[in-house]
Amino acid sequence: MAELTTVAVAGASGQLGKPLVSLFIKSGHYSIVRILVRQGTIDKPEFQEYRDRSGVEIVEVDYENPDSVLASLKDIQLVVSCVAKPGQITNQLPLAKAAHTAGVKLFIPSDFGQNFPTYGDPNDRYVNTPVLYGKYAFFKLANEINLPQASFAVGNWMESLITPRGGFDFAARKVTIYGTGEPPVSWAVTNDIARYVDHILRTVPLKEALGKKFRMQGDRQSPNDIVRLWEQKYGEKLEVTYKPISEIHKLLDESEGNNFLASLWNEWANGRGAFPPDEVDNHYFPDWNPKKVVDYI
């Protein structure tokens, strides 16, 4: 999208937003890189490093005030949302409405994760987290108002999930896996996600990007593969505990579906954790060379 040269970013201080903003600035492609910050947060330390950067603007936004949101998008052609927290994901809705009114050429929503084919489906009680419904609400609104948009499905984030929280406690030499552990899972690290998104936004023609979900994959490894890779790399054995899928459903039922991690485990265990090979869009960035799981662990 070489024709888009002004960009506004929401969620610029987050895990993905920060490296993405740095790449936008470093590329020199954008005449304006505007960082949208929530009301009352403009003086936070994480935003101060941008104050003296040429072409970078920091704008405070009151997402409950339509005029404030609309004013924040003046002269902006591209909006990238990296908001992720449950309490902030709904900010995409007033931002989307303002983008439509302002004539923004392309909106990239915060959908940087695994592709959940059934989110928004009231019949799937196991995909019912606030984050997922916040994402679903965006796409529903975007379709209703004909907002020009494209999105990115990036798989599962290694830094967040190949961790004790995700069941991989390598320090304790223990791993917990739900189901058989054999279905493959798509993986990537944050910096590689940012590099891919930045490359796509600067190189793919707008006409080709409109309405497309770009599926990128840094690596494709099952939970059992990760165990084998770790044991081969370090020459030690891990204690692996397998739990039935019914245990995931118990976690989700107890939380009334509001357990994002359990929702991910449910997708992995049921063979929906990886993109079909013929749907992966890595060819858009031939020189990407993303980090592999074996190099991360």
Rank of each mutant, 00 (worst) to 15 (best):
L36A: 07
L132H: 04
G134Y: 04
V79S: 03
I58W: 06
F152N: 03
V197F: 02
P130V: 05
K213V: 15
G40C: 05
S72Q: 03
G14Y: 00
P244L: 02
K85A: 12
I226P: 05
A96C: 10
G134L: 06
K291G: 03
L201K: 08
N146G: 09
S186Q: 06
G273P: 00
K74A: 13
V33C: 12
Q232W: 08
A274E: 02
N115S: 15
D198E: 13
Q77R: 07
G257L: 01
E279Y: 03
V131G: 03
L132G: 00
R202T: 09
G14E: 03
G257Q: 01
G218C: 09
K213L: 11
V69L: 03
P286W: 09
L238Q: 05
A262T: 02
D225E: 13
P277F: 04
S54T: 14
R220K: 13
A274K: 01
Y234H: 14
V131K: 14
G87M: 11
I32C: 14
F47A: 06
W157H: 01
I248T: 07
V83K: 01
L73P: 05
A84H: 14
E46M: 10
Y30P: 02
V37E: 03
A84L: 13
L132P: 02
V104D: 00
G271W: 07
Y119A: 06
T190L: 10
G235P: 10
H100C: 13
A142I: 01
G235W: 11
G167R: 01
P290W: 01
E239P: 00
G28H: 12
S22A: 15
T101C: 06
P290T: 08
K212H: 14
D67P: 01
Y119R: 13
V189R: 03
T5D: 11
K207L: 11
H249I: 11
E57S: 13
D67R: 07
I35T: 04
I42Y: 00
F116D: 01
D278S: 14
V33A: 08
T6W: 03
P66N: 05
E279T: 15
W268T: 00
G235D: 14
R220E: 07
S222L: 14
G120V: 05
I200Q: 00
Y30D: 04
V240M: 12
G218W: 04
L4M: 13
L73I: 10
R228S: 15
E236R: 14
R202F: 07
P109Y: 04
A84S: 15
L36D: 00
V185P: 02
F152W: 01
G40Y: 08
V294Y: 09
V189Y: 04
N259E: 02
L264A: 09
D281H: 14
M216F: 12
